[in-house]
Design a protein around this nucleic acid. Structure first.
Length: 288
DNA sequence: CATCAGGACACAG
DNA sequence: CTGTGTCCTGAT
């Protein structure tokens, strides 16, 4: 049994911020194992995290090859994060300020793009537990077991050999066709995702939207959570509600809201989105 | 038993 | 380019 290792953190982190980062809907690969510990995986590696006495600890259950640097990169635990938070307009925006204050250390994870795209295609009209469930069914069937009741994402190449009907049997519903068709496009292109990641936000988004089942919202989620494009501002029904009630955008169309968000929240608007999303989800900001 | 989700798409205006 | 009905499935 390996021992917990301390993960250096330059500033304050909170249990709620960490919890929301891991359970708040940007990743579906983590499970709480107690009130202060989580187990999850990324890039086919299993990691456990523990938050105690203001410090973050980590370990790998089955002597994995993961390094501290990889975990810090994944969790966005560096000084750039503090600068990003500081650049958000919390000084003049009381709604955002309330969320930022209540959720110290809430970050945007740096996840693998292929896996993020997969999960967010599944996310359409589904709740977080449902997305976890159907995603896990696919990983259990075509991914490899990582122990601890976790399975790796099989990869699009493997999924390209699976029929739409087999996905439907795993309760994907109309998303089965999307997954199957996307797999036909990207499954045999080993450079698809690395190419997307290198494009500008605008170019990457218009490229992703060409995929069946990928609209502006899912493309933004993929780019924000899977390609570190913090200019992405996913607008789902929750965020739309926040913009309506707290920013007076009831009469705005979808694209007008998107424009407003980028202008108001700035270069790191994706991070602002995550704060507002969690704040709304947790009832930290009361709706009118 | 009917309605509606953390969306996209096809089709109409 | 903006506004609706439909698509699977499960929760309410």
């Amino acid at each position: 049994m390996s021992k917990w290792k301390e993960l250096a953190r330059p500033n304050n982190l909170s249990i709620l911020g960490l919890k929301e980062t891991l359970e708040g809907g940007q990743t579906f690969s983590w499970c709480p194992t107690s009130t202060i510990t989580w187990i999850g995986c990324f890039r086919s590696k299993v990691v456990e995290l523990k938050f105690k006495d203001g410090m973050l600890f980590w370990k790998t259950p089955n002597s994995g090859t993961i390094t501290e640097e990889e975990i810090k990169d994944y969790l966005w635990l560096d000084s750039e994060y503090d600068g990003a938070v500081d650049q958000l307009p919390w000084r003049s925006d009381h709604v955002l300020a309330k969320c930022v204050k209540a959720l110290p250390g809430l970050t945007i994870l740096n996840q693998p793009l292929d896996e993020v795209l997969f999960y967010f295609i599944l996310s359409s009209a589904k709740s977080i537990p449902q997305i976890k469930e159907i995603g896990s069914l696919v990983c259990q069937k075509w991914g490899k077991s990582l122990g601890n009741n976790l399975w790796s994402f099989p990869g699009w190449s493997k999924l390209s050999k699976v029929s739409e009907d087999e996905f439907r049997k795993l309760k994907l519903g109309y998303r089965a066709k999307y997954i199957h068709n996307v797999a036909q496009v990207v499954g045999n292109d080993p450079y698809y995702f690395s190419t997307i990641s290198q494009l500008s936000y605008i170019d990457a988004k218009s490229e992703l939207i060409r995929l069946p089942g990928v609209g502006p919202k899912i493309a933004d989620c993929a780019l924000l959570f899977g390609a570190t494009k913090t200019e992405a501002f996913p607008i789902d029904t929750w965020i739309a509600k926040v913009l309506d009630s707290h920013y007076g955008l009831e009469s705005f169309t979808y694209s007008q809201k998107a424009l407003f968000a980028r202008k108001h929240f700035g270069l790191f608007c994706g991070l602002a989105q995550q704060f507002l999303f969690s704040g709304e989800r947790l009832g930290l900001i009361k709706s009118k």
